[in-house]
Amino acid sequence: TEYKLVVVGAGGVGKSALTIQLIQNHFVDEYDPTIEDSYRKQVVIDGETCLLDILDTAGQEEYSAMRDQYMRTGEGFLCVFAINNTKSFEDIHQYREQIKRVKDSDDVPMVLVGNKCDLAARTVESRQAQDLARSYGIPYIETSAKTRQGVEDAFYTLVREIRQH
């Protein structure tokens, strides 16, 4: 089974770092803004072998026109913010609204991801993020692309959301 996953969120929150940590098991430290990259990885989730087709997208506003296209083809979405960047957390709402509009559905598989949880300088409390996820009816997972904490959990949870859909 193949799953088309799309990673969305503001610029600099760590979308590529999360994806590369999942696929290649290493942490990319330097920031190089993405336009669009796709990665494929075969994994076993709950005993089922599946192929993850992951689209890593641009957070930069100037590429926002490309969003409709990949939102149409994606089956599930990782909505990523950084726990030390309140603005990126506030941006999640717009991504969710755009996904709902493009998919013409209120019920699209999504996982809210709070990345950079290895950093002490948190400005978005776990509780705020949990409340937001609960209001959307989606899971919330904290990750660190640096330490790998929660990385597999985030992507695998999204696959489970798609399966249950």
Rank of each mutant, 00 (worst) to 15 (best):
T1R: 11
E2C: 03
E2D: 06
E2R: 02
Y3T: 13
Y3S: 07
K4S: 11
K4R: 10
L5Y: 03
L5M: 10
L5S: 00
L5T: 03
V6H: 08
V6Q: 05
V7F: 06
V7A: 05
V7M: 08
V8E: 00
G9W: 00
A10P: 08
G11H: 13
G11D: 10
G11T: 13
G11N: 14
G12Q: 13
V13T: 14
V13E: 03
V13Y: 02
V13L: 07
G14C: 00
G14I: 00
G14D: 01
K15E: 01
K15D: 00
K15C: 03
K15L: 00
S16T: 07
S16M: 00
A17W: 02
A17P: 01
A17I: 03
L18A: 11
L18T: 07
T19L: 09
T19S: 13
T19E: 02
Q21Y: 08
Q21F: 08
Q21H: 10
L22R: 11
L22V: 09
I23N: 15
I23L: 15
Q24E: 01
Q24V: 15
N25H: 12
N25S: 12
N25Q: 12
H26N: 10
H26S: 13
H26Y: 12
H26A: 15
F27G: 01
F27Y: 13
V28A: 06
V28S: 07
E30S: 04
E30T: 05
Y31P: 03
Y31V: 02
Y31R: 01
Y31H: 06
D32W: 03
P33H: 02
T34Y: 00
T34H: 00
T34R: 00
I35S: 01
I35Q: 02
I35E: 01
E36F: 03
D37E: 01
Y39A: 00
Y39C: 02
Y39L: 01
R40T: 10
R40L: 04
K41M: 06
K41Y: 11
K41L: 10
K41A: 14
Q42K: 07
V43S: 08
V43F: 13
V44L: 10
V44E: 07
V44S: 10
I45T: 06
I45L: 05
I45A: 11
D46T: 05
D46F: 05
G47E: 07
G47F: 06
E48Q: 12
E48C: 00
E48L: 05
T49H: 10
T49E: 07
C50W: 12
C50L: 09
L51A: 10
L51N: 09
L51D: 14
L51G: 07
L52T: 06
D53S: 03
D53T: 02
D53P: 03
I54S: 03
L55R: 02
L55T: 11
D56K: 01
T57W: 03
T57D: 01
A58I: 03
A58P: 12
G59A: 04
Q60E: 14
Q60T: 15
Q60R: 15
E61R: 14
E61I: 15
E61M: 15
E62D: 15
E62S: 15
E62P: 15
E62F: 15
E62L: 14
Y63C: 13
Y63W: 11
Y63M: 10
S64Q: 08
S64L: 10
A65G: 14
A65E: 08
M66L: 12
M66C: 14
R67L: 15
D68Y: 04
Q69H: 11
Q69G: 10
Y70H: 12
Y70C: 13
Y70M: 14
Y70E: 15
M71L: 15
M71C: 06
M71V: 09
M71E: 08
R72A: 14
T73Q: 15
T73R: 09
T73N: 14
T73E: 15
T73M: 13
T73A: 14
T73V: 12
G74T: 12
E75S: 10
E75D: 14
E75A: 11
G76A: 14
G76F: 15
F77G: 01
L78P: 01
L78D: 01
L78A: 06
L78T: 01
C79G: 03
C79F: 15
C79K: 02
C79R: 01
C79H: 03
V80Y: 02
V80N: 03
V80S: 03
A82F: 00
A82V: 08
I83G: 14
I83P: 13
I83H: 15
I83Q: 12
N85I: 04
T86A: 12
T86I: 12
K87P: 11
S88Y: 04
F89A: 08
F89I: 11
F89Y: 08
F89E: 03
F89N: 03
E90V: 09
E90G: 07
E90M: 11
E90R: 09
D91Y: 12
I92P: 02
I92R: 02
H93W: 12
H93G: 12
Q94N: 15
Q94Y: 15
Q94G: 13
Q94I: 09
Q94A: 14
Q94R: 15
Y95I: 15
Y95D: 03
Y95S: 06
R96H: 08
R96I: 15
R96L: 15
E97G: 05
Q98C: 11
Q98G: 10
Q98F: 15
I99D: 02
I99A: 04
I99S: 03
I99K: 03
K100L: 13
K100I: 06
R101K: 08
R101V: 06
R101D: 05
V102K: 05
K103S: 08
K103H: 12
D104E: 11
D104T: 08
D104G: 14
S105V: 11
S105Y: 08
S105E: 07
D106S: 12
D106C: 09
D106G: 13
D107G: 09
P109Q: 04
P109I: 06
M110N: 01
M110P: 00
M110C: 03
V111C: 05
V111W: 00
V111S: 02
L112R: 01
L112F: 09
L112E: 02
L112T: 01
V113H: 00
V113D: 00
G114W: 02
G114T: 02
G114Q: 04
N115E: 01
N115G: 10
N115H: 15
N115D: 04
K116H: 15
K116F: 15
C117M: 08
C117H: 08
C117S: 10
D118K: 01
L119D: 15
A120D: 11
A120Q: 12
A120R: 08
A120F: 08
A120S: 09
A121T: 10
R122M: 09
R122T: 13
R122K: 10
T123D: 11
T123W: 06
T123A: 12
T123V: 10
V124P: 12
V124K: 11
V124D: 13
V124Y: 12
S126E: 10
S126K: 06
R127A: 15
Q128C: 09
A129W: 11
Q130C: 06
Q130E: 11
Q130K: 11
D131T: 06
D131Q: 12
L132F: 13
L132N: 06
L132T: 05
L132Y: 09
A133V: 04
A133I: 08
R134I: 12
R134Y: 05
R134W: 03
S135R: 11
S135F: 11
Y136R: 05
Y136V: 09
Y136D: 06
G137N: 10
G137I: 04
G137P: 02
P139G: 05
Y140L: 06
Y140P: 01
T143H: 00
T143V: 14
S144D: 15
S144F: 03
A145L: 03
A145T: 08
A145W: 02
A145P: 12
K146Y: 14
K146I: 13
K146N: 15
K146W: 14
T147A: 10
T147N: 13
T147E: 12
T147Y: 10
T147D: 15
R148A: 08
R148M: 15
Q149I: 11
Q149P: 08
Q149L: 08
Q149Y: 06
Q149M: 06
Q149E: 11
G150M: 08
G150N: 09
G150H: 07
G150A: 10
V151I: 14
V151H: 15
V151R: 03
V151P: 09
V151K: 03
E152N: 09
E152C: 07
E152F: 15
D153Y: 05
D153L: 07
D153F: 05
A154V: 14
A154D: 01
F155V: 13
F155M: 11
F155C: 08
Y156N: 15
Y156I: 14
L158Q: 01
L158F: 02
L158I: 15
R160C: 10
R160W: 06
R160V: 05
R160S: 10
R160T: 08
E161M: 14
E161K: 14
E161D: 09
E161G: 08
I162L: 12
I162D: 03
I162E: 02
R163K: 12
R163V: 07
Q164E: 09
Q164V: 04
H165T: 11
